[in-house]
Simulated scan of single mutants.
Amino acid sequence: MSVTPELHGNWRVYRYQTIDSTNLEALRLARREALAWTAVRADTQTGGRGRLGRSWSDTPGGSLLLTALVDRPRGLEALLAPAMAMACAEALETMGAPQIAVKWPNDLLLAGRKIKGVLTEGPAEGLFAVGIGVNANGRAADLPEELQGRATFVSEQLGREVDLDLLADGLLECFERHHHALLTGRPGPVVEALRARDCLTGREVSVRSGGDTIEGIAEGWTDDGRLAIIDRAGNRVVLDAGEVTLS
């Protein structure tokens, strides 16, 4: 399907009603055109994917499904997904949402429940696809059974529907700022913003990483986007990836 991109600030945005995956389409565009500052949006996906090989289901017309195609911030790739999460939190708060917490590596929690997923893929022609799916408008009661009590919709917390176009524009504007900081080797502002929203530091956590489970006290975000933990033996462990639960 041929789609003409629309200009939104510095971004060329390709908009689809239905697509297999915004990330996959962004990677296809990267291989075909190799242009950064490209974004892909869809009203619904037939093959949405999340972290750790999981599927990601959306609410047709009620979820913001968007992927940004950006240049590689060498050495700071691990901060791309958290930067996208931070951009989403900032955009939602300008629209009236209460303060949103960040849970490493890139979860956003509103009223203690997850509202979005982020998946980073690449590089393709030197570009990375950073995709996000936001539970914007819907009812938590309609979420899959495995997400009951763990996820929610922004609209339920706001008491009104979220304008998806306004959210998309605000998110891209905020992400552009964070990505520029990473691209120019200045991760400090991004990391400090993440630390200010962090909900794990000082708390007892259990992290599944690879085939291991590590338990201890979360020390917080490192300067390059990893998670530091003081384990039960008193050792400082730094993790690149993992699934965190509060003990």
Rank of each mutant, 00 (worst) to 15 (best):
G133T: 08
T4D: 10
A30N: 04
V154H: 00
A241N: 13
L167N: 03
L164D: 01
S55N: 09
V118H: 01
R203W: 04
E25D: 11
N135A: 05
G234C: 03
D224R: 09
G50H: 13
G225H: 06
F128E: 04
T213M: 07
Q148M: 02
Q17C: 03
P187V: 12
D107C: 12
A91G: 02
G149W: 04
T67W: 01
G47A: 15
L158M: 15
Q157R: 15
D169C: 08
D223C: 09
L172C: 04
S21N: 04
R51A: 13
A39D: 03
A101Y: 08
D240A: 15
L227C: 02
S55W: 06
V244K: 03
A228Y: 06
G159D: 14
T67E: 07
L7D: 04
V3W: 08
E176R: 05
I229Y: 00
D58N: 11
G62D: 05
A89I: 12
V118F: 00
L166Q: 15
A193D: 14
E90V: 12
G50V: 13
E77C: 13
D212W: 02
A101K: 15
I230V: 11
R232W: 02
A111T: 01
D240P: 00
E6R: 13
S55A: 15
E90W: 07
V238F: 01
G149P: 06
T213K: 04
W104N: 07
E156F: 06
E146T: 08
L167I: 06
Q45T: 12
E173H: 10
R113K: 15
Q45A: 10
L35A: 09
A111G: 01
L35N: 00
T120G: 05
R41C: 12
G210R: 10
H8W: 14
E33W: 05
G133Q: 02
L80I: 07
M95C: 08
L183E: 11
R41G: 00
A78I: 13
L79P: 11
R226N: 12
N23I: 12
L109S: 11
E243S: 13
I230C: 07
G234F: 02
T67L: 04
Q17V: 13
G50D: 11
V118M: 01
A196S: 15
R197W: 10
G210C: 13
G216R: 03
T59C: 12
P105Y: 06
A42Y: 08
T201R: 14
L194Q: 09
A81M: 05
A151E: 05
G133L: 01
R28L: 12
I229G: 04
E204M: 07
D163P: 05
A85V: 05
G216I: 00
L171H: 00
T22Q: 13
P144M: 07
P144D: 06
M95G: 03
L172A: 03
L227I: 07
Q45G: 13
A101C: 13
I214Q: 07
G117R: 00
R49I: 14
N135T: 10
L183N: 07
G122C: 14
R32G: 11
A228N: 09
V70H: 04
L119Q: 12
R177H: 08
P144T: 07
N106R: 08
A42L: 09
G112V: 06
G133I: 04
N23V: 10
G117A: 12
V191P: 05
L147E: 06
L172G: 06
R51D: 05
D223W: 04
G75H: 15
E173C: 03
L164Q: 07
N135H: 03
D198S: 14
G138L: 02
C174V: 00
